[in-house]
Amino acid sequence: MGSDYILTPEGREKLEQELHYLETEKRAEVGERIKVAREFGDISENSEYDDAKNEQGMVEARIAEINQILSEATIVDTPKKSNKVTVGAIVTVNMGGKERVFTIVGGAEADVAAGKISNESPVGAALLGHKKDDEVTAIGPTGREIKMTILKIEH
């Protein structure tokens, strides 16, 4: 992923909340674990200390990652009056006879299980710029065509 992160205002808020939690509660909690583990004596064979240090490393890495995303992200405000699919839109499609609902988001926010697909994913990229009733074809990861008809676009 390049340095061009795209976030919706909700996505930015979620990251800011996670960052706040990590920088305050989680950092203190891990620091406390390290302090307690040190009191167990010999650090060299203290798995509790190692675990706490590893977790501290992961917490710090995630804090750095969120800070980077937030500093480089382009925040996209969802246009309220658009009849086209844009980042931030909630799109209902007919995909092989099944109704599927996707929210188009930037790559940093993508969460397929929650129906949030990246604007860079095959389906997300294919839907961008299309209108209701458009027939859209995406090429899936396996190389096969995914045909969809846009039923509804909400912003």
Rank of each mutant, 00 (worst) to 15 (best):
I63G: 08
V76E: 01
R100M: 14
P9N: 14
E60Y: 06
H130W: 03
I75C: 02
Q17N: 13
K35D: 09
Q68M: 07
T92S: 11
A28H: 13
R38I: 07
S71Q: 06
E39H: 10
N67G: 15
E145N: 12
K132N: 08
T142D: 15
V93W: 00
K98Y: 07
K80W: 01
N54A: 09
A138V: 10
E13Q: 07
V93G: 04
R27V: 11
T78H: 03
Y49F: 14
A73R: 01
E72H: 05
D51C: 02
N83I: 00
H20Q: 12
S121E: 07
L22R: 09
L7H: 01
Q56G: 15
V30S: 02
G11E: 04
A113Y: 09
P122V: 11
E65S: 14
K98M: 04
D50Q: 15
A138C: 03
E16G: 04
A64Y: 07
V112F: 11
I63E: 08
R33V: 03
T149A: 09
I75K: 00
G107S: 13
T103M: 08
I6Y: 01
T24I: 05
N119W: 00
A37E: 12
D51Y: 13
R144M: 05
I34V: 13
L19K: 10
I104N: 06
K26F: 08
E55P: 05
L15Y: 13
G129Q: 03
Q68F: 09
A110R: 04
I66D: 04
A138S: 08
L151F: 04
L19R: 11
G143N: 11
L128Q: 08
K132T: 12
G31C: 11
A37P: 07
L151T: 04
K98T: 12
G140Q: 11
G88I: 06
E18G: 03
Q56V: 05
V123C: 06
D4H: 13
